[in-house]
Write a protein that binds this DNA or RNA. Structure first.
Length: 807
RNA sequence: GCGGGUGUGGCGGAAUUGGCAGACGCACCAGACUUAGGAUCUGGCGGGUAACCGUGGGGGUUCGAGUCCCUUCACCCGCACCA
C-alpha cells in the first residue's frame, strides 16, 4: 500500500474538526498548558515556509504536551491593524476591512492545511470592534492611572509613513517599517509612561525563562545607570543648571559644561555676541535627520553660548557650550564635561581647545601629561588634584562627593534610563481611535466606558495628511461630538493607536475571547495565564515583548489580572533563508508551502521544517532534502502496514531494548527542543525495526505511532487505526521509559595507546579491572604497539576506555 | 567603539561530565530489480597508496580536547555620542 498523504490528511483534518478535538476546555481534569504563537499580521502575500517554522514548532510542542497529560490551549488570531492594509486602501481603493478579511480568510485556509491543533473557536481579530473596544478600555485605564498623557515635544517622524514613531520603531536612524530616515518633529502627542515601569521591567527579567540574548537586549534597551544629579549655579543668573552624571568623583576635572541645543536655558544663557552663532547651530541641529545626528563619523560640533556656570567646590567659572552630542531627552539634557576621563568630552575639548584636567591616576604611576593624552583615561584609579578627595578610590569619591553636595542641598542620587516614554499616537487611519474628546471647557475628557467602542468611521481618503493630523480629522461627523462631562460641543481625538496596541494584551483575550461584557473573565484569565510557552521571531525582542510586559504589569496594578509577567518561557525560532537571505515577497525569494503540501503532504513538510536544522538557528531552504523526509515517512507507513498484517503477541527482549532506548532519546531531545535530532532518532529506529527478522508486536507499534503523533499527526492517526486501536491517538499517553532496558549486558572498551585507538574489546558489564587489563594486554595490536616500549601509566575509565601511556 | 553569537566532510548538521569526530539526511559513486528510471532496494562515501593527518589559525592544560584556558582571524546579530 502506498503512502497517500493527501487522502490521509484530508480525512483526519475533518475528523478533528468534527470531534472538536482541538478545543481547550476549562472543565478538563487535566492540568492546563498554554502554548502560544506570536500571532501574524495577515498580509496579502500569505504564508511561506519560513512562517511555518515557528507554527510547526509550537504545534509539535502542544501536541507533545497533550500526550503528556495536559489540557493544551493553543489559539490563533490576527494582528490586523497596520499599515499595509491602509496602503492598499490608498493605492487600490480596497477598504481595509475588506482587504483584511480577505487576507485573514487566506491565512486561515493555509494554517488549516498545516494541520495544527489551533482552537479556532477562540479566534480573535484586533481590528474588529468587539476586540478594539477593549483595547480602548485599557487606554482609559492608562489615562485614569495617569500613565497616558499628552505632551508637546520633538518626536521621531517618518516623512514617508507621515506619522510619529516610538523610539523602538527607529532602527539605525530610519523607520523600522519603510527604511526612510527619520526626522524630528515637534508635536503634541499621546505618550505612555512606560518609564515608570523601567525598574520592574528590568528586575523581573531575572525570573523569566527566556533566551539570554533577548533578556540582555531588553536590559540594554532599558539602560539603567546609577548616578547623581548635580546642580550648578549660573553666573549672573538667578537660575541653576542641573546635570546628570555617573561620575561625581570627577567633579574637580570639570572644565566646561554642555547643554543639548534644545535645552530650555539656552536662550537665557546666550550672550548677545554669541546670539547668532547659537541660533544658527540650534536650527541646523533640529533640521538634521536622526541618521545624520548619530552618524558613525562622530566629529564633535558645538558652539559657545557666552554663559558660565560656577564650580560648586572651587568657584571657578566654567564656560557653557551647546553641542548635539548631548541629548535633550536623557538625564537633564545637560552635562558637566570631564575631558580627561570621558572620551566624548575629550574629543570635544580637543576640537575646541578646551582645557583637560586629570583628576584620576593609577596608584604609583607617573601618568602622561594632559597635553599629551591621546584619549580619555577611563580606568578606576585614585583621585588627584581634587582637594579633600585626593587619594580616595573612585568608588569612595563617588560616594563622598555626593554626600557632601547633598548636605549642601545641591545634589541627589538618581538613576538614569535609556528607555523613553512611549509615543503612542499615530496620524494614520487603520488603528484604534484613541477614546478621548477635547472640550474647550473641560479640556481632555475620556469617553465614557459605556460609549465604547469609538468606532472607526468610513473615510473617503485614507492618505495621511502629513500636516500631523490623521485622515480622521477630515471627517466632520466623526470629529464633532459632545463633551461627556459638560455636554457642550467638543472634538474627538483623531489620532489612532500604534500597531502594537492590540498585541499588548491579545494573549489575555484568548482565555475568554468572546466576552461582550468585560475585557475578559478574570477567573478564566488567571486559570490559563501566564503563557507557558511563547514562540516567535527574535525581531520583537524590544518592541512587542517589552510593550506586552508593560501592559501586563499595568493591568496587574489595576487588579484586572493576578500575575505580572505574561510569558513564562520564550523561544525564538530561526529564520528560513533562501540564497542566504531572509525570505520575503519583496525580494522574490519565498518558497510557498502550497505546492509542497500538494506534492508531499503536510506531515512531510512539518517534519522537514524540524529536520532542517536546530530550531533556534537560521536555516537555508534545501529543496532536495525534503525528499529524504518524505521517503522516511513512506517507509514508516509501509513498515506499519506490513507489521499490522501479522503482529506478534509478545515483545521480544531485543525489541524492548530498542524501544526503550528510542523513547528515552526522543523524549530527551523533544524536552531539549532539539527537534532536528528527534527526526534522526526516528530514522534510526525505523531502520532498526526494518532490519528485524522477527515480526513486530503491538507495544512496539503503539509506541512508534504515539511518538510520531506530535510530528506527523495525520499519519499517526491513520496508523493508530491500522494497528488496531480506537479513537484518536491524542487520547493516548506518552510512553514511559524503563531504565532496566537501557543497560546492556556487555560493553565495548576502547583500547588506546597514548590516546590513539588500537583495539576494541567486548566484555561483560561487571568485569573487574584486572580482567579487562588481561584482555587488553592479550590483544595482538596492543602487543605490537608496546613491543619495545615502556609502560608509564595505565588509565582505566570503567566501561569505556583503557589507555596505555608508553614511551 | 560596547555587548552577544557562530566557525566540524561537497552540503545541512550529530557528538552526556573532557573519553570511538562526522550520527541522520542531501548530493555523489557502484550494484540489484526493470523495456525504462528522475521509482524502489542494497552497498560505499573526511583527506592520504600508507604510516598517519584531520573540528577557522597559533599556543597551553591533560593519559586523552570539537568540548577547558590563553591568543588570533573571519563572519553574523544587537546597541550605538545615554553623560
Amino acid at each position: 500500500m502506498n503512502y497517500d498523504a493527501k487522502t490521509i490528511e484530508a480525512k483526519w483534518q475533518s475528523y478533528w474538526e468534527e470531534t472538536g478535538r482541538d478545543r481547550a476546555l476549562e472543565t478538563s481534569q487535566r492540568p492546563k498548558y498554554y502554548c502560544l504563537d506570536m500571532f501574524p499580521y495577515p498580509s496579502g502575500s500569505g504564508l511561506h515556509v519560513g512562517h511555518w517554522r515557528g507554527y510547526v514548532l509550537s504545534d509539535v510542542w502542544s501536541r507533545y504536551k497533550r500526550l503528556n497529560g495536559y489540557e493544551v490551549l493553543h489559539p490563533m488570531g490576527w494582528d490586523a491593524f497596520g499599515l499595509p492594509a491602509e496602503n492598499d486602501a490608498i493605492k487600490k481603493g480596497i477598504h481595509p476591512t475588506v482587504g483584511t478579511a480577505r487576507n485573514i480568510a487566506n491565512f486561515k485556509e493555509q494554517l488549516k492545511r498545516m494541520g495544527a491543533m489551533f482552537d479556532w473557536s477562540r479566534e480573535i481579530n484586533t481590528s474588529s470592534p468587539e476586540y478594539y473596544k477593549w483595547t480602548q478600555w485599557i487606554f482609559l485605564q492608562l489615562f485614569d492611572m495617569g500613565l497616558a498623557y499628552r505632551k508637546e515635544m520633538p518626536i521621531n517622524w517618518c516623512p514617508s509613513c507621515k506619522t510619529g514613531l516610538a523610539n523602538e520603531e527607529v532602527v539605525d536612524g530610519a523607520c523600522e517599517r519603510c527604511g526612510t530616515p527619520v526626522t524630528k518633529r515637534n508635536m503634541n502627542q499621546w505618550m505612555l509612561r512606560i518609564t515608570d515601569y523601567a525598574e520592574r521591567l528590568l528586575n523581573d527579567l531575572d525570573d523569566l525563562d527566556w533566551p539570554e540574548k533577548v533578556k540582555k537586549m531588553q536590559a540594554n534597551w532599558i539602560g539603567r545607570s546609577e548616578g547623581a544629579e548635580l546642580s550648578f549655579e549660573l553666573h549672573g543668573l538667578e537660575k541653576r543648571l542641573a546635570v546628570f552624571t555617573t561620575r561625581p568623583d570627577t567633579l574637580y576635572g570639570v572644565t566646561y559644561m554642555v547643554l543639548a541645543p534644545e535645552h530650555p536655558l539656552v536662550s537665557e544663557l546666550t550672550t548677545p555676541q554669541q546670539q547668532q552663532a547659537v541660533s544658527e547651530y540650534v536650527t541646523q541641529t533640529l533640521a538634521k535627520s536622526q541618521l545624520a545626528r548619530q552618524r558613525v563619523d562622530k566629529t564633535k560640533t558645538g558652539v559657545f553660548t557666552g554663559g558660565y556656570a560656577v564650580h560648586p567646590l572651587t568657584g571657578e567659572l566654567l564656560p557653557i557650550w551647546i553641542a548635539d552630542y548631548v541629548l535633550m531627552d536623557y538625564g537633564t539634557g545637560a552635562i558637566m564635561a570631564v575631558p580627561a576621563h570621558d572620551q566624548r568630552d575629550f574629543e570635544f575639548a580637543r576640537q575646541f581647545q578646551l582645557p583637560v584636567r586629570r583628576v584620576i591616576k593609577m596608584a604609583g604611576v607617573q601618568e602622561v601629561s594632559e597635553q599629551n593624552m591621546q584619549e580619555a583615561d577611563v580606568r578606576d584609579g585614585t583621585l588627584m588634584n581634587s582637594g579633600p578627595y585626593d587619594g580616595l578610590t573612585v568608588e569612595e569619591a563617588k560616594r563622598n562627593v555626593v554626600l557632601d553636595l547633598e548636605a549642601k542641598g545641591i545634589a541627589k542620587r538618581t538613576v538614569g534610563y535609556k528607555l523613553r516614554d512611549w509615543v503612542f499616537a499615530r496620524q494614520r487611519y487603520w488603528g484604534e481611535p484613541i477614546p478621548v474628546v477635547h472640550c474647550e471647557r473641560c479640556g481632555i475628557v475620556p469617553v465614557k466606558e459605556e460609549d465604547l467602542p469609538v468606532l472607526l468611521p468610513d473615510v473617503e481618503r485614507y492618505e495621511p495628511t502629513g500636516t500631523g493630523e490623521s485622515p480622521l480629522a477630515a471627517i466632520e461627523s466623526f470629529v464633532q461630538t459632545t463633551c461627556p462631562k459638560c455636554k457642550g460641543p467638543a472634538k474627538r481625538e483623531t489620532d489612532t493607536m500604534p500597531q502594537w496596541a492590540g498585541s499588548c494584551w491579545y494573549f489575555l483575550r484568548f482565555a475568554d475571547p468572546h466576552n461582550a461584557e468585560r475585557l475578559f473573565d478574570r477567573e478564566k484569565v488567571d486559570y490559563w495565564l501566564p503563557v507557558d510557552m511563547y514562540i516567535g521571531g527574535v525581531e520583537h525582542a524590544v518592541l512587542h515583548l517589552l510593550y506586552a510586559r508593560f501592559f501586563t504589569k499595568v493591568l496587574y496594578d489595576r487588579k484586572v489580572i493576578g500575575f505580572h509577567e505574561p510569558f513564562v518561557r520564550l523561544f525564538n525560532q530561526g529564520m528560513m533563508t533562501l540564497h542566504g537571505a531572509k525570505m520575503s515577497k519583496s525580494k522574490g525569494n519565498v518558497v510557498s508551502p502550497e505546492e509542497l503540501v500538494e506534492k508531499y503532504g503536510t506531515d512531510t513538510l512539518r517534519m522537514y521544517e524540524l529536520f532542517v536544522g536546530p530550531p533556534e538557528v537560521d536555516a537555508e531552504w534545501n529543496p532536495r532534502a525534503i525528499e529524504g523526509v518524505h521517503r522516511f515517512l513512506a517507509r514508516t507507513y509501509r513498515l506499519i502496514v506490513d507489521a499490522a498484517a501479522q503482529m506478534q503477541k509478545q515483545e521480544s527482549r531485543s525489541l524492548g531494548k530498542l524501544r526503550h532506548r528510542f523513547v528515552q532519546q526522543v523524549t530527551e531531545r523533544i524536552e531539549g527542543f532539539r527537534f532536528n535530532t528527534v527526526v534522526s532518532a526516528f530514522m534510526e529506529y525505523v531502520a532498526a525495526l526494518s532490519e528485524q527478522s522477527e515480526t513486530l508486536d503491538q507495544k512496539t507499534l503503539d509506541t512508534l505511532v504515539i511518538c510520531l503523533a506530535p510530528l506527523a499527526p495525520h499519519l499517526a492517526e491513520e496508523c493508530w487505526r491500522i494497528i488496531g486501536n480506537q479513537g484518536s491517538v491524542f487520547d493516548a499517553s506518552w510512553p514511559e521509559v524503563d531504565e532496566r532496558y537501557l543497560v546492556d549486558d556487555t560493553v565495548v572498551i576502547v583500547v588506546q595507546i597514548n590516546g590513539k585507538i588500537r583495539d576494541r574489546i567486548e566484555v561483560a558489564r561487571e568485569t573487574e579491572q584486572e580482567q579487562v587489563r588481561e584482555r587488553v594486554f592479550a590483544s595482538p595490536s596492543v602487543q605490537t604497539a608496546i613491543a619495545d616500549k615502556t609502560i608509564v601509566k595505565e588509565v582505566y575509565v570503567p566501561g569505556k576506555i583503557f589507555n596505555l601511556v608508553v614511551r
